[in-house]
């Protein structure tokens, strides 16, 4: 409610007379409605632009394609970072910056990696099939766990079923199909993206004692999850990444391209840090995530 606080007239002594009180209430309600309308309009305009110019999941491109964005940037760490990434990563895939980019990048990168493994032969195939069935089990079991936490089945069911259906369809999918599915506006992959938010929420709530100390301004994990995890379009901090990747037990490596100067390699982090090889590598730039493809993963 913080955004509404500013426009709502605080109670004053003058409002004690009921007629004045009503007038003030009417004013504040009109202001509030107007402000909401404006915010919604602005947001819609931004969203429309993003939608028109940026697919949810872009095509693979060379990492160097990022260089022009940092032409003349006062922080030399950006260009230097892109050059470093170019030596270690064969490609980059941009993901739409609509507040869901972490979840979407992670999910796409993960499923694409699984699909690649499934299309290979020998060990790589076996490994990928085992990993897919492990993931399916985690997703399968998650609904009961979320219901136990107080979520309603009717709210979860479509999303959960869609997730399982997509996982079941994966072994028979052509490589290009995954891209097509992820690009569909309001398509099934949007369901999966939202369900990942629920997986995150469930894990953070079950482990609230461990995660609450990371949250500076909150003592209530339920409130945090409702505010910062569950709504679509809410951006993601490290705590959500830990929640999701630990729940799925799928490590993600994140390269931090934040403009800071560095020596040797660009800074990176793997979550959860168990020493296991990351299944997905993402590029972080302030406020945004994209997918990276390591040289060896070709």
């Amino acid at each position: 409610m913080s955004e509404e606080k500013d426009t709502t007239a605080p109670p004053t002594a003058a409002d004690a007379a009921s007629s004045t009180g009503e007038a003030a209430a009417a004013d504040s309600s009109v202001d509030l409605a107007k402000q909401n309308e404006q915010t919604v309009e602005q947001q819609n305009a931004i969203n429309a632009t993003i939608k028109a110019t940026q697919p949810k999941v872009g095509a693979k491109e060379e990492v160097d394609a990022l260089l022009p964005e940092y032409e003349g940037n006062p922080k030399p760490g950006f260009r230097k970072g892109v050059q470093d990434l170019g030596k270690r990563y064969s490609a980059l895939r941009r993901v739409r910056g609509d507040g869901n980019c972490f979840y979407r990048s992670f999910l796409f990168g993960y499923l694409e990696r699984l699909l690649q493994g499934i299309k290979s032969v020998g060990d790589a195939n076996t490994k990928a099939m085992l990993e897919l069935s492990r993931l399916r089990q985690v997703v399968h079991d998650s609904k009961a766990a979320l219901i136990a936490l107080g979520y309603e089945e009717v709210a979860l069911d479509d999303f959960w079923q869609t997730f399982l259906q997509e996982l079941d369809a994966l072994p028979n999918m052509e490589m290009g199909q995954l891209e097509i599915n992820f690009r569909e506006e309001a398509g099934p992959c949007e369901y999966i993206v939202w369900y990942c938010r629920m997986l995150t929420s469930g894990f953070l709530k079950l482990n609230a004692d461990r995660f609450l100390p990371f949250l500076e301004h909150t003592v209530d994990m339920q409130d945090f999850c409702q505010r910062e995890v569950e709504p679509m379009g809410k951006e993601c901090e490290q705590i959500q990444i830990m929640g999701l990747c630990e729940h799925l037990n799928t490590p993600v490596k994140i390269e931090y391209l934040d403009g800071q100067d560095f020596s040797g390699q660009l800074g990176s982090i793997t979550l959860p840090d168990t020493g296991a090889e990351a299944m997905v590598t993402l590029l972080y730039r302030p406020g945004h995530y994209d997918v990276l493809y390591p040289m060896t993963n070709q």
């Binding site: 409610m1 955004e3 509404e4 309603e152 709210a155 929420s201 409702q226 569950e230």
Partner: peptide, 14 residues
């Protein structure tokens, strides 16, 4: 004015 109908809204509600 209720937060779950505004900034806290998500598909988890019914």
């Amino acid at each position: 004015c209720l937060d779950i109908l505004k900034e806290k809204w998500s598909s988890a509600f019914s």
